[in-house]
Design a protein around this nucleic acid. Structure first.
Lengths: 229, 229
DNA sequence: ACAAATTTAGACAGTCTTGTCTAAATCGTC
DNA sequence: GACGATTTAGACAAGACTGTCTAAATTTGT
């Protein structure tokens, strides 16, 4: 037991670094092999620590798994809210701004390592850990959807969109901009950037045809230009 | 009088009946536990046969898994094409007909047992069996998407929709009508029928705002807007 | 450099799983 | 009822994995 120099003692840097390395590696292995197929020896080896260290830090396999999910959920949430903060509240070019937002959301939250891993763990092990993933549901979708919907509501209030139900519109927005990436997501793949941009572009155009104000002459001209590009 | 494992499954009679019972039960267990976590003893017990019978029929665990995926893929394809055949080529009420089609697609192909299981197996084990799931990709999405897109193209050709790219429209149609079911799908749940209908209704309405012919008032407004520009 | 904390390698028991084997029981069919 | 094919229960070997333990090596703070 460490003598407490200060009320809240921080573990040594090496100690914490190992903890992170273990959780990171465990995320990779759990995703690749599934919970049952994941092997503590393998995780330890890939993390560059001994098996005993894994047990010292996390107790047992199940606790390690919990730590992985909590870690991923937290980091993904940070990324999502950081990206939501870039939502175009006062759009200059609404189409381009929404495409940019959709691409950022995909690249920073859905297609990146954390997003892919969290999605896969939820899909594969979600039914086995109801309370853990109930927590995820509250912290994740339960907070991010209202936040996104609120941004669309503000756009509608500002007269940039014609939206009846902002919650529905928010979900449909994501359904549309990801419409062409579903098969890739299904197999755990990562779409190329140009595929993300393509899907977002097509999705936003359809979204604006449904929810946008009638195009003025200027934006109609812009449409034509982008379409020809 | 023999005691059966579960009250709703009768002990199968006959060679082929046993084979089917094994594959069916194996699908359930593979989905619930993952490939590594699935236990042959458990599959045998739940299927109401002895472990040796499982090995007699399917050789080993991996061959059993392959048989499960092939079985599911084939049955899902049959269901999807049967449902595509009900696509409204000559719609009376386009909105109602498309909603009906979307609901049928969801209930008969995506939310039913085979669809749920196949999706989960692809998500969880797809990366481990590239050639097996490449086959699925060809037989499944590779054939169903063009078939659906062709139906939308015909609707557009018949003057019922205004569609630029039928492939994009088909993918966006599914993205829209499933937009509100994503979280449920993620956790492996089955949405209630009223949720499916709600999501389909909202999705089709948005789809038609984007791709539908404008009713007279709206197209008049459109003309006016363009004329004023 | 010293002392405490941490990490390491390896052995270890206990458990589980796969896949094989055998002899008895059961089923389908005549 | 009888015969051949199938199924069954159970034993079995071989291997894998988890989680614990120990003693030695290493790192960290002072």
């Amino acid at each position: 037991m460490r003598a407490s120099v200060s009320p809240d003692t921080f573990p040594p840097r090496g100690h914490e670094a190992k903890r992170l390395s273990i959780v990171d590696t465990a995320a990779t292995v759990f995703c690749r092999e599934g919970f049952a197929g994941a092997n503590i020896d393998l995780i330890a080896a890939e993390a560059g620590v001994s098996r005993q260290t894994v047990y010292n830090h996390h107790g047992d396999k199940e606790k390690l798994f919990m730590a992985v999910v909590r870690d991923l959920t937290e980091r993904c949430n940070v990324g999502i809210f950081a990206t939501i903060a870039t939502f175009p509240d006062q759009p200059g070019d609404l189409e381009a701004d929404l495409i940019g937002f959709a691409v950022r959301l995909n690249q920073n939250c859905i297609c990146n390592r954390d997003g892919k891993f969290l999605r896969k763990l939820i899909q594969t092990e979600g039914e086995r850990y109801p309370e853990l993933f109930a927590e995820w549901r509250e912290q994740g979708p339960g907070r991010t959807w209202p936040a996104i919907a609120a941004r669309f509501a503000r756009l509608a209030y500002g007269g940039h969109l014609v939206i009846d139900d902002p919650d529905v519109a928010a979900r449909q927005f994501l359904g549309l901009v990801n419409a062409e990436l579903q098969t890739t997501f299904m197999l755990g793949g990562t779409p190329r950037e140009d595929e993300v941009v393509q899907s977002a572009t097509n999705g936003v155009r359809t979204f604006l045809r449904a929810f946008g104000k009638r195009p003025t002459a200027a934006s109609a001209k812009k449409h034509a230009t982008l379409a020809n590009a």
